[in-house]
Simulated scan of single mutants.
Amino acid sequence: MKKQTHLLHAGRNAKENFGIVNPPVYHASTVTFPTVEAMNKAGENPTEGIYYGRMATPTSHAFEEAVAALEGADKAIAVQSGLAAITGAILAFVKNGDHILVTDSAYFPTKKFCNTVLKGFGVETTYFNPTIGSNIEKLIQPNTKVIFTESPGSLTFEVQDIPAITKVAKDHKIITMIDNTWAAGYFFNAFDHGCDISIQAATKYIGGHSDVMLGTIALGDDLYKKVKTYVYGLGYCAAPDDCYLAQRGIRTLPARLKIHEENGMKLASWLKEQPEVKRVLHPAFEDCPGHDIFKRDFTGACGLFSIVLQDHYSEKAVASMLDGMELFPMGYSWGGYESLMIPFNPKGARNASSWEDQGPCLRLHAGQENVEDLINDLDKGFERLNKG
């Protein structure tokens, strides 16, 4: 069955729900049992059945089954945010005295977690250049437990050679994880490329409507019980209404991603020709670091990319541009139906790689608006930018 078809049917069973197409929402904390024997039996394997509301409900199980189908995984775990998925997955495999490797282009809250919480627990983090490939072997220590990747990288969009990294990791029996949110688990199959765990902020494209806080951890049967038990012990769980909304979102994911991809490519191509733009950071473009890897490993692109403006533009000029945008409001997150744009400066967030560009940077999310309207809004924005 093709993925597009599978996503429409995974995680729902109309026969079990009176013929109702969509699985119902179960709001539950307490789950009762008719006998001591039934309670004890459920408690023998609480990660699989319905034992307590925080552990799972039929709603979360249905969503997790759909995510596993999307990612090509055996199982999936839903938690309350993308960051919770990242932190819970990492914590399940480290203890005091351990060491992990993290891409220098990771989502900044991931790095902040490593620099504060993990450091406080006595876990050392080494950041690596996202273009390192198989040379990551030189950074492995005897106590290295996890290699955490993100491809393309947040904000700057370097594409990593995931197969090269995971091959080294397997040789050293190290767990590999990827933040797979940009590809939405749809344009990149983490498991086909050697990853052990694929993480997403389902807040983004899976939810698709800017109204869900949710994270997912996709993984194999061999790791599921370990990670599920750990995140349960941390008190992590996903709200039933968010799981329900994300189930609805995942059904239309392929159709929505197609529009985001088309609009993103058209906007990036137009921006590349504008004199105000020094560089477009989009994996589908030849001058983006790792473009050849992108062509080899990815089946498409989402609507998120960045641009570097010419060096001479001041912060005041950039603010003038952004303050007047009509269809590109400023807001963190992305993956909803609407377009967004934020300014950023990657220099202060680099540990193992340098950022040479001097010009201001903007990250854009291409929503589902008419692309001509988006271009017109950007054109007016550049007029304000040039006026300073």
Rank of each mutant, 00 (worst) to 15 (best):
F298S: 06
T116V: 13
N45H: 14
A84G: 09
V146D: 00
M177F: 04
M321K: 05
C302N: 12
M265R: 10
F121H: 12
N143I: 06
W355S: 09
A349I: 10
V117E: 12
F344W: 05
T252H: 11
D242G: 12
F18R: 14
G388F: 07
L118F: 08
N96I: 09
S29G: 13
A201T: 04
F157N: 00
D74E: 14
E150T: 02
K387Q: 09
N96D: 15
G367I: 00
I175Y: 02
S81G: 07
D287I: 10
N45R: 15
V117Q: 11
T166D: 04
I132A: 00
G359L: 02
Y51P: 06
A255M: 15
K15A: 15
H6V: 15
M177W: 08
Y224W: 13
A69H: 03
T110V: 11
M39I: 15
S339W: 07
D373M: 13
E64G: 06
G303F: 06
P142C: 01
E124S: 12
V146C: 07
P109Y: 05
K15P: 04
G264S: 11
Q200G: 12
G120Q: 09
H193P: 05
E64S: 11
E65P: 03
G290E: 00
I199N: 00
V31W: 10
K278V: 07
V159G: 00
A73G: 11
L340S: 02
P58L: 06
R384A: 07
L219G: 01
H282K: 12
L91M: 11
F113G: 00
P343R: 08
P163N: 07
F188E: 01
R279E: 13
T181W: 00
Y244H: 12
A317D: 03
I199T: 05
T126R: 07
F63V: 10
A68L: 06
V36L: 15
P58A: 03
S105D: 06
L70R: 01
A106R: 00
H61Q: 13
I162N: 02
G220P: 06
E71P: 02
G19H: 03
H61I: 10
V231E: 02
F63Y: 14
V123C: 04
I136Q: 02
Q247P: 03
L304F: 08
A164P: 02
